[in-house]
Design a protein around this nucleic acid. Structure first.
Length: 824
RNA sequence: GCGAAAGUGGCGGAAUUGGUAGACGCGCAAGGCUCAGGACCUUGUAGCCCUUACCGGCUGUGGGGGUUCGAGUCCCCCCUUUCGCACCA
């Protein structure tokens, strides 16, 4: 099988080098870990922490970590002080499901996954400050989730409330609105249904305006993410108006962005979930039929109810309301398209000036009254009011203010701003999460656990049957407790927190991870925070990033931090996609069955080649389809660099030699390469960085093979090459740097400098156009004048033949680039 | 439907922001080395035309128009793809 007496294969040699340097970096780790931020300098580089409750890291994840590590190493080489920690977002449903299927406790499987992933990071050559490691499923971390919960409760920002919530029948838990986008469960894709339940909410809506205003300060965030958050918060300016229902002795408040159209409101429409519905239908001849309809709409899957083109379906209650401005009776309807938890769950229908109301009115024969002059109905634009009493002839915008003011003076509403954002539902009927520190006492009601009794530890011995709800409910020792207030027997809350609570403040815990008296020491955290550069996927655009921004505001109110925005700059790397077995191009993930492990590739080609390849795939912000076919390019490139250095060393030339002259074509090539690579890394353009390194490597190999080349310049070129290579291929570059006489790791200020004056070619090749068409190219000394260029161009036969019998009527001259002779 | 981004060789992609389109790599082709090679090295590689060859010419960045000495880049219209939002009153 094996061939004896063969010299060590290339892959053995690569393995030896990579092992050597991993050990070296680990040994010298102290040089690369946080020791406090020097005044006015330093960069907090944060990468979205991985989720070790599921599978091992695959190609889909690797790009993020390679990218971050390249940036990290580059910045260190530039002499910056960097804080780059890593931790584990360890709670979550997959680990619990795994426990149900395989009988392995989530804590056990999670720790095993963490160990495996940590080993992967090591094998990939990815450096983190492990002295700041955070694991969210450990009491040392999640006790502070509980602490934050108590603080939120004190401030009235954590509340228990009954409302219609998203329920995933598959995960058997409720979900936050953000986790049920599009009406399907964020985790498993199952359509969610609405359930009326009492749950814990965090009042993120109290910060709606601040979260919205803060977006304007996030200039270094992708515009797309900012827009998504803005839409999610969904600010609307309008007015509240009360419509009296004399038959019930009640009034119904509606919210509208178009109070100017109130004279055209010919119906009042309520959501089937509206609190007044039972009384409205009570005396209806077909009360049972209506009730059945209400129930069926309410229990419908959200995805079906909100689907595009879903039929508008409504019922007339037979009850009348009074339009507060016309004084006329209008019918009160119930309809499936009215959303219970936006606005007031009720609206005034203005069929003439709203396409949706128009459609509904057409279907059910509701009167259509035009009150704005404009185009064909439904006309949703602006215009002068008509048939609007004393407000007629006002413009829409003026009337909006006047009518809202009138409503306020009559105490039937007034100007109002509303948001689409809803409060953050954090209760989860699951085991593997942070216990909510609340106790339900038969006499005192809900009582918070005193701070001194934290943490409420998740009991290790829960029965994972997968049936019958939350296993925590069955742990008597956990559930049965005493009331902190009266000392009587009481029941502990068995719901756990949404895992997004964990990731809402972890970036601050990194700064002081072993603090057992506070989530972190504000003074210490202030050295590095806020985060200078955050790197993560677009999938967090709304969920995590909105929650983190909310938590940061809370932390500011608690005096823990002085800023509101946690992440000064955000970079969204693109996803790695791959054809799934179904043939569609999708995000790579284990659940889709298209995940590719990187480990065999690394074992075969080495981490450096795989890093170079993955970074070379394309622009990092764009998605890239995975195929390992192209890896031979970067692999050969690294081989060429190595061969060039080894050949040069073998000549016995001085590896620390310096160029004999500063300004030579080779020196200029070197300065240009340093300039390009510096710009590439500054711009996160890792794929062009690899391309430029390839060009530079070819050039360097040429110098090594050129007997006439200056040995000093060749040595300097090779030293620059391996230094520039370091962010991409750290192991090989360190090895070659050592061969070239380097005594310190390239990680420490190993970035070469360039002279801008020398980072351009001395000879400019100037394109010569005749009437805009390129006819030739002339080599000129950089900085040559237009006159010199024209003389050279006219002397060129390839140009001259186009000038015969022509007259040059205009000359365009772009220094060192282009000469255009316009002829007639 | 609304909004945003994008469309460049067989493929991934580059282009100093209005100045030589196709860098770099994959793939492919020819040659070298080799017992052999899916290893390695060298060279070529947008299309079409002319030519024995050289020299050369024309076309070309989704389609159509425009601005300009000059457009992948700017403007207008259209097509396609991707993403986000979508009964939000």
């Amino acid at each position: 099988m094996t061939t004896p007496s063969v010299p060590p294969s290339r892959s053995d040699e690569i393995r030896r080098i990579e092992t050597k340097w991993r050990e070296r970096w680990e040994r010298d780790r102290a040089a690369f870990v946080d020791t406090g931020k020097p005044a006015g300098d330093g960069t907090y580089l944060l990468v979205m922490l991985p989720y070790p409750s599921g599978d091992r890291l695959h190609v889909g994840h690797a790009r993020t970590y390679f990218l971050t590590d390249a940036l990290h190493r580059y910045l260190r080489q530039r002499g910056r002080t960097i804080f780059c920690p890593m931790g584990w977002d360890a709670f979550g449903l997959p680990a619990e499901n795994y426990a149900i299927q395989r009988g392995v406790h989530p804590h056990t499987s999670t720790l095993a996954n963490i160990a495996a992933m940590k080993e992967q990071f090591r094998a990939w050559g990815v450096l983190y400050d492990w002295t700041k490691e955070v694991t969210t499923c450990e009491p040392a971390y999640y006790r502070w989730n509980q602490w934050f919960f108590l603080k939120l409760l004190e401030k009235g920002l954590a509340v228990r409330r009954k409302s219609a919530v998203n329920w995933c029948p598959s995960c058997e838990t409720v979900l936050a609105n953000e986790q049920a986008e599009g009406g399907v469960c964020d985790r498993c894709g199952t359509p969610v249904i609405q359930r009326e339940l009492e749950q814990w909410f965090l009042k993120i809506t109290d910060y709606a305006e601040s979260l919205l205003a803060g977006l304007d300060t996030l200039g270094k965030w992708p515009e797309k993410v900012v827009t998504m958050q803005r839409n999610w918060i969904g600010k609307s300016v309008g007015a509240d108006l009360d419509f009296a229902i004399p038959a019930l002795g009640e009034s119904v408040r509606v919210f509208t962005t178009r109070p100017d159209t109130v004279y055209g409101a010919t119906a009042l429409i309520l959501a089937p979930e509206h609190a007044l519905v039972p009384r409205l239908i009570a005396n209806h001849p077909d009360e049972a039929g209506l009730q059945t309809w209400v129930t069926s709409v309410r229990d419908q899957e959200r995805i079906a109810r909100e689907a595009e083109g879903a039929e508008k379906d409504g019922r007339d209650t037979g009850v009348k309301a009074i339009n507060p401005f016309t004084g006329q009776e209008i019918p009160v309807w119930l309809a499936n398209f009215v959303v219970a938890d936006y606005g007031t769950g009720a609206l005034m229908a203005v069929p003439a000036h709203d396409t949706r109301d128009f459609e509904f009115a057409k279907k059910y024969g509701i009167p259509i009254v035009k009150v704005i002059e404009g185009g064909d109905l439904p006309y949703t634009g602006e215009g002068p009011l008509v048939a609007s009493g004393t407000f007629s002839e006002n413009s829409s915008s003026a009337a909006r203010e006047l009518i809202a003011a009138e409503a306020a003076s009559r105490r039937i509403g007034g100007p109002r701003i509303r948001y689409r954002l809803r409060d953050w539902l954090i209760s989860r009927q699951r085991y593997w999460g942070t216990p909510i520190p609340m106790v339900k006492c038969p006499t005192d009601g809900w009582v918070p656990v005193p701070e001194k009794d934290l943490p409420i530890v998740l009991p290790p011995d829960a029965p994972f049957t997968g049936k019958g709800g939350n296993p925590l409910e069955k742990v008597a020792a956990f559930v049965n407790t005493t009331c902190p207030k009266c000392g009587g027997p009481a029941r502990r809350e068995t719901d756990t927190m949404d895992t997004f609570v964990d990731s809402s403040w972890y970036y601050m815990r990194y700064l002081d991870p072993s603090n057992d008296r506070a989530p972190f020491d504000p003074a210490r955290a202030a050295e590095w925070a806020p985060v200078d550069q955050y790197i993560g996927g677009i999938e967090h655009a709304i969920l995590h990033l909105l929650y983190a921004r909310f938590f940061t505001r809370v932390m500011k109110d608690l005096g823990l931090v002085t800023f509101e925005e946690p992440f000064s700059a955000l970079f969204n790397q693109g996803m790695i996609t791959r054809q799934s077995p179904t043939g569609r191009v999708e995000k790579m993930s284990k659940s889709r069955g298209n995940a590719v492990s990187l480990d065999p590739l690394i074992a075969e080609k080495g981490a450096d080649a795989v890093r170079a390849f993955v970074l070379f795939l394309g622009p990092p912000e764009k998605d890239a389809e995975w195929s390992d076919e192209g890896i031979s390019g970067p692999e050969r490139f690294l081989g060429r660099v190595r061969t060039a250095v080894e050949r040069f060393v073998a000549t016995g030339a001085d590896v620390r030699g310096e160029p004999a002259a500063a300004d030579t074509p080779a020196a200029r090539a070197r300065h240009m390469a340093v300039k390009k690579l510096t710009e590439d890394f500054d711009a996160f353009s890792f794929h062009t960085a690899v391309a430029h390194l390839m060009e530079f490597a070819t050039h360097a190999a040429g110098l090594v093979g050129d007997a006439k080349a200056d040995r000093g310049e060749t040595a300097a070129t090779l030293r620059a090459l391996v230094a520039l290579l370091h962010p991409i291929a750290p192991h090989l570059s360190e090895e070659l740097n050592e061969k070239l006489g380097g005594t310190a790791s390239l990680l420490v200020s190993g970035w070469p400098a360039f002279d801008p004056k020398l980072a351009v070619e001395e000879i400019a090749s100037v394109a010569v156009q005749v009437s805009g068409k390129v006819r030739s190219e002339v080599k000129l000394q950089r900085g040559s004048s237009e006159k010199e260029a024209r003389a050279a161009a006219e002397a060129d036969p390839a140009v001259a033949r186009w000038l015969v019998d022509k007259q040059v009527v205009k000359v365009i001259w772009v220094q060192d680039r282009l000469l255009n002779l316009v002829v007639k």
